[in-house]
Simulated scan of single mutants.
Amino acid sequence: MTRIAFIGAGNMATALIRGLLNSGHTATSIRATDPYAPSLDAMRALGVAADDNNAAAVAWAEVVVIAVKPQMAREVLTPLAGQFTGKTLISICAGLPCAFFEGVLGDVAVVRAMPNTPALVGLGATGLYATAAVSDAGRGAADALFNAGGVARWVESEALIDAVTAASGSGPAYFFALIEAMIQGATALGLDSDTAKQLVCQTALGAAQMTLSEDASPTELRTRVTSKGGTTAAALERFEDGDFNATIQAGMQAAYARAQELAAQS
């Protein structure tokens, strides 16, 4: 079984490790490092070996997941330069391009990943890009890692990772904002907050599941439940008065532009 080391044992690393364990990956083939004792204790509670020795973890592993804050990456990785030959590095550091890791570490095969926070509940969506140096085995390891906690899709160019960021990386916040507004709207109409939350969240979950499971497009599904002159039509017309579609797309364009700016700063 592939030996996987996590450099950084925060929330996202923990979610990925739980996904691996739930999918049948053995705890003995996973190792984690972190400078903070509580994070190490959490790893050990999962049966995963954990300490603060990054160099030893890299030497042991076949695949190394870099799960530190982007601003800490250079400091953490510089002492490990030259130690990644023959290994696959998977980065979940937002905004750091593959060239950053190649510049700091030298000879390294890099998979750049853009996961999102629903991975914390096993429903993540991750975009993946691999440099030419990544082997089929390295790609397979990345597939297994991120599909264990949701779904993963490969993109053909690294530039498209910024599009992934705009769509799914930042996407949960868009849905949280919509859910928040709908709950506020429901309570303003007289529902208590708990009932409003349950109804709105279940509706969001059901709509997403229908979109994934049926052959019909989102447009067709929307049309099916929108009777001319009915309540749904009244709501959607009001949304369009505020340029709903254009506003959503403008927000995604802003996220995309900001992702490009952050990458340029690295």
Rank of each mutant, 00 (worst) to 15 (best):
M1W: 02
T2V: 10
A5I: 03
A13F: 01
A15Y: 01
L20H: 01
S23A: 15
H25F: 01
A27M: 09
A32E: 07
P35Y: 14
P35F: 13
L40Y: 09
M43E: 11
M43N: 08
A45W: 03
L46K: 04
G47V: 11
D52K: 02
N53L: 04
V63D: 01
V64Y: 00
A67K: 00
Q71W: 05
A73R: 03
R74N: 10
R74Y: 12
T78F: 05
P79S: 12
P79T: 12
L80K: 06
Q83K: 14
Q83P: 05
Q83N: 13
F84G: 08
T88M: 07
L89R: 06
L89K: 00
I90M: 05
I90G: 03
G95N: 04
L96G: 06
C98S: 15
A99S: 15
G103L: 13
R112Q: 12
A113T: 11
P115R: 03
P115I: 08
P115H: 07
P115G: 03
N116D: 07
N116E: 09
V121H: 08
L123F: 11
G124P: 02
A132C: 06
V134G: 07
S135A: 13
S135Q: 08
A137F: 10
A141G: 06
D143L: 01
D143F: 00
D143K: 00
A144Q: 04
A148P: 02
A152K: 01
S157E: 09
E158C: 11
A163Q: 13
T165N: 14
S168T: 14
S168R: 05
G169V: 04
S170L: 09
P172M: 09
P172L: 07
F175A: 15
F176A: 15
I179V: 15
A181N: 10
Q184R: 14
Q184K: 12
L189W: 11
D194L: 10
T195Y: 00
A196P: 04
T211S: 13
S213I: 08
D215N: 14
R222L: 03
V225R: 00
K228H: 10
G229R: 04
G229A: 08
G230C: 11
T231W: 02
A233N: 03
A235W: 03
E237R: 04
G242N: 07
D243Y: 01
F244H: 01
I248Y: 07
A250F: 05
G251L: 05
G251V: 14
Q253P: 01
Y256W: 14
R258S: 07
L262D: 07
